[in-house]
Design a protein around this nucleic acid. Structure first.
Length: 854
RNA sequence: GCUUGAGUGGUGAAAUUGGCAAACACGCCAGACUUAGGAUCUGGUGCCGAAAGGUUUAAGGGUUCGAGUCCCUUCUCAAGCACCA
């Protein structure tokens, strides 16, 4: 039971939640009289487990920033949304038979309510939900724009298939041979899939990284993932007249080529192999195919390969070069063919050692060094190019090969086009209908047709045993294309899609090329119709998360993805806070879409996230990553119930530096809870009245000094996202307040304002009880007054030979000579000075004197 | 293997960037007020030592009047990359 005058966080917090909602405190509107500040969180996937302590960490941080910026006169936008498509909701649907939207909506309601409970200052009018038709209508629209501009296509190629998840995955979603979600094994399958041409933006994505205010590690990761390498394409002719193209970044080593190696999957391999080598090459390829990707890329294993029986001719030396097949050559990198230069490449060296191939040194370092020698140097044994530096030779040799028409400079990316289709139900359906070739030609031939709105210059088509089909894009008028009901949410066997379980009235349609109407194929209709089949893949979860932040600006806007007036004012987020695990996923995909939308002229900026911050992971109390299986998951609700939301917020911010990963320890919650109770008692007496201590005429100088130091420290710390040290300074301030007999009301107010971004509920309550009008969030941030912090005396550390011997306090205006003289009079110092001779005196103003005695 | 970070009390961590190491908390010890304390307050708390004093930032070396901070070597941990031609 609470006694009168005790800190009753439950009723306080409930009261202020209601107040903020009723007064629309956090609703943000365009205001040209104010500078804008947009804080953005990575929006959560609304899981059934509810809000996680990790969410609380990031969202509290942005809330503090938002409240602080607002107090500093900014017009602050802080919105929230739900990344609500995805597998868990679908798996729930499979087990319950209920539509995933039901479960999704329940989870969202729960998340929203939990966020409100921790007191986040969010403009809930702007809430975005990726699964709502009014949102994904525009996700589909953006896809159609990509389609129209030739950036979306279908391709049949080896892709990652995850049997457990029943879908294909993008390269970015496969980590160490396992799925990013769920860590299930994946395998290669050759499947027809939708792909986005992200490589067309490779250079822009790479260049843009340079100017971003992001953690260096994340920038490095993105740069490495895009993986630009400059080099040359060089064509070798085989003795039989076939032509093989290799990619190399080291054309300067061209005279050191002693073999050519080709990937086992290379389409030209079969034609290359000589008659007598057929069987052993085939056997080798079979062996390789049986290996998993993990086995194949295991660095520890020895290199293997088989001679194809064929030779290529070196274009400049006319030497015969044997062609080998080896699985250390990766089909998906470069051209899948490598010129082997054992003397100057580790892998080629290893291979040459195994099969006793010649090692020809063509580059010399400044000193004698063992082979393989892979750094820069001077060319030797390279004909006319000998004595050139490696840098010069790279250009010269490529130029020579270019002149001969057998080489060219080129740029190669590690980044591959983005595999964009999934075989699951709970995602955006593709707004595409497949039609016969003749019908597509008719559409192209028409003067006008609604279906030409997003028609690409180059048709997208694929061929199966039953003929070739062409992709017809739906029109803006058809959007949103909502998900059909299906007989089962379970994927079918193999690589077929869940949407194939939809009613044939949805799957098989007829289109009117003149009116733009779409009807079920079996319906009766007058006029000229063509038949088509709907695309049954769905988009990956990343589609919705690629542009959600833009929709916050105008969630109900009907004329486009974003209201131009809103985006002209708010532009891009001023800070983006979220996990580092998305470094090459969401953060890369979103940049791609944003740059594309910028190129369409829809956005004022080319980069979405100028400033990015990753909060560290909160580990379980046992120091391990929180997980259900370890049973170390902490639910923030239990802390709120027992200590209140303000304690939870303070606790998470006080744990350590925001960017560090740190273990949870409930014991420490007590510390911040005690602090809040102490604050409460400083303001409210046991009768529940404002403490008699508040309302003095003047402040004690010691308290006033600490208070102003606190203003300076908290201000600087929030600016630098150092919330842990800001809170410790607030603790120091209260401890000093406790010692003071009286404090003035203005000082009491200042303290509450400094604490308010961290613990908003208690501060609103005390603010009101002090008799202030309106919400504390609207009070302008206190200004630091340096004159309040002036020390009358300076404390000097006195050292002899760098060791502290004593300290002295002297007036601030004491001169160097006075300080040194005073230090020399210290008895301990005298004894040292008498024992030796004074060699040197170091004087640091207002800090220290050091006597060097020998 | 490579790249990039990091390593400070029993614990989470601070340290105007080269100037009193351990702020602020947790925990622990002692005390006060209490019928009671899981409330609150006061004091103590890196290590060795009775004290004077000595000593301490993963280990070792260096630069400097002075190093947690800069340089070199080694070790450990974390993250990322991993046959990228």
């Amino acid at each position: 039971m609470l006694k009168t005058g005790e800190y009753d966080f439950k009723s306080i917090e409930a009261r202020w939640h209601a107040f903020w909602a009723e007064k629309k405190t956090f609703e943000a509107n365009i205001d040209f009289n104010k500078k804008k500040y947009w804080v953005l969180d990575m929006f959560p996937y609304p899981s059934g487990a509810g809000l996680h302590v990790g969410h609380v960490e990031g969202y509290t941080a942005t809330d503090i920033i938002g409240r602080y910026k607002r107090a500093n006169g900014f017009n602050v936008l802080h919105a929230m949304g739900w990344d609500a498509f995805g597998l868990p909701a679908e798996q729930h649907a499979i087990s319950t038979g209920l539509h995933p939207s039901i479960n999704t909506q329940n989870n969202i309601d729960n998340f929203r309510q939990q966020m409100q409970r921790i007191g986040l200052g969010i403009d809930w009018r702007r809430e975005v939900n990726t699964t709502q038709p009014k949102y994904f209508r525009w996700t589909q629209w953006i896809f159609l724009q990509l389609f129209k501009h030739g950036l979306a296509y279908v391709d049949k190629k080896p892709v990652w298939w995850c049997p457990e998840l029943g879908t294909v995955l993008a390269n970015e979603e496969v980590i160490d041979g396992k799925s990013e979600r769920g860590h299930y094994p994946v395998e290669r399958r050759s499947l027809l899939q939708w792909v986005l041409r992200i490589t067309a933006y490779g250079d822009k994505l790479l260049k843009g990284v340079e100017n971003l205010d992001w953690p260096e590690a994340t920038k490095r990761q993105q740069t490495a993932w895009i993986g630009r390498s400059e080099g040359g394409l060089i064509r070798f002719k085989t003795e039989s007249g076939a032509s093989l193209e290799v990619f190399t970044t080291r054309p300067d080593t061209f005279f050191g080529v002693s073999f050519i190696a080709i990937a086992p999957e290379h389409p030209l391999l079969a034609q290359l192999v000589s008659a007598d080598q057929q069987t052993c090459v085939q056997d080798y390829c079979k062996q390789v195919a049986a290996k998993s990707d993990l086995e194949r890329t295991d660095l520890a294993k020895n290199k293997t390969g088989v001679f194809t029986g064929t030779y290529a001719i070196h274009p400049l030396t006319s030497e015969r070069i044997p062609i080998w097949v080896s699985d250390y050559i990766l089909m998906h990198h470069g051209t899948g063919v490598v010129m082997g230069v054992p003397a100057h490449d580790e892998r080629d060296f290893e291979f040459a050692q195994t099969y006793h191939l010649p090692v020809k040194q063509v580059i010399q370092g400044s000193e004698e060094s063992p082979l393989p020698f892979c750094s820069e140097g001077t060319l030797v044994n390279s004909g006319e190019f000998s004595a050139l530096s490696t840098q010069e030779a790279r250009k010269a040799i490529l130029k020579r090969l270019g002149d001969a028409g057998i080489g060219q400079t080129t740029v190669q990316y590690k980044l591959h086009d983005w595999l964009f289709s999934r075989q699951r139900y709970w995602g955006e359906p593709f707004p595409i209908i497949w039609v016969k070739e003749t019908d597509y030609k008719r559409l192209e031939g028409l003067k006008t047709s609604p279906f030409q709105e997003f028609l690409p210059q180059k048709p997208i088509a694929y061929t199966t045993s039953s003929g070739t089909v062409y992709a017809v894009p739906l029109t803006s008028k058809h959007l949103p294309l909502t998900l059909p009901e299906v007989s089962s949410y379970k994927p079918n066997q193999g690589a077929t899609t869940v949407l194939q379980n939809a009613d044939s009235k949805w799957l098989h349609v007829k289109l009117n090329l003149v009116t733009g109407e779409i009807l079920p194929a079996d319906g009766q209709a007058e006029g000229d119709w063509i038949e088509g089949t709907r695309e049954t893949n769905t988009m990956p979860q990343w589609a919705g998360s690629c542009w959600y932040y833009l929709r916050y600006l105008s969630p109900d806007f009907e004329e486009g993805i974003v209201d131009p007036k809103e985006v002209a004012y708010w532009k891009t987020p001023d800070i983006y806070v979220g996990g580092a695990e998305h470094a090459v996923l969401h953060l890369l995909y979103a940049r791609f879409w944003h740059q594309f939308l910028f190129d369409l002229g829809l956005l004022p900026t080319s980069e979405p996230f100028i400033k990015l911050f990753h909060p560290g992971i909160i580990l379980g109390p046992d120091g391990n990553k929180m997980s259900k299986s370890l049973g170390n998951v902490v639910n923030p609700n239990t802390v709120i119930d027992e200590y209140g939301a303000d304690s939870l917020r303070l606790y998470e911010m006080f744990l350590g530096p925001l960017e560090a990963s740190k273990p949870w320890s409930l014991q420490n919650v007590e510390g911040v809870y005690r602090f809040l109770k102490k604050v409460w008692r400083e303001f409210i007496d046991i009768e529940g009245q404002i403490s008699k201590k508040i309302g003095g005429d003047t402040d004690e100088p010691t308290f006033e000094k600490v208070l102003h130091e606190t203003i300076a420290k908290v201000t600087e710390d929030i600016d630098n996202l150092r919330f842990n040290t800001a809170i410790s300074q607030l603790m120091i301030c209260v401890n000093q307040m406790q010692k003071a007999k009286k404090i003035t009301k203005p000082s009491a107010r200042i303290f509450l304002q400094l604490l308010a971004p961290f613990a908003p509920h208690i501060c609103e309550e005390l603010w009101e009880r002090l008799g202030e009008q309106g919400s504390i969030v609207d009070a302008p941030w206190p200004q630091f007054d340096p004159s309040k912090c002036i020390h009358t005396e300076a404390k000097y550390v006195v050292q002899v030979n760098g060791k502290v011997r004593d300290e002295i306090s002297l007036p601030m205006d004491a001169s160097q000579e006075e300080v040194i003289e005073a230090a020399k009079r210290i008895s301990k110092v005298i004894s040292y000075l008498e024992k030796g001779t004074l060699v040197k005196t170091i004087y640091v103003p207002k800090r220290l004197v050091n006597f060097v005695v020998r």
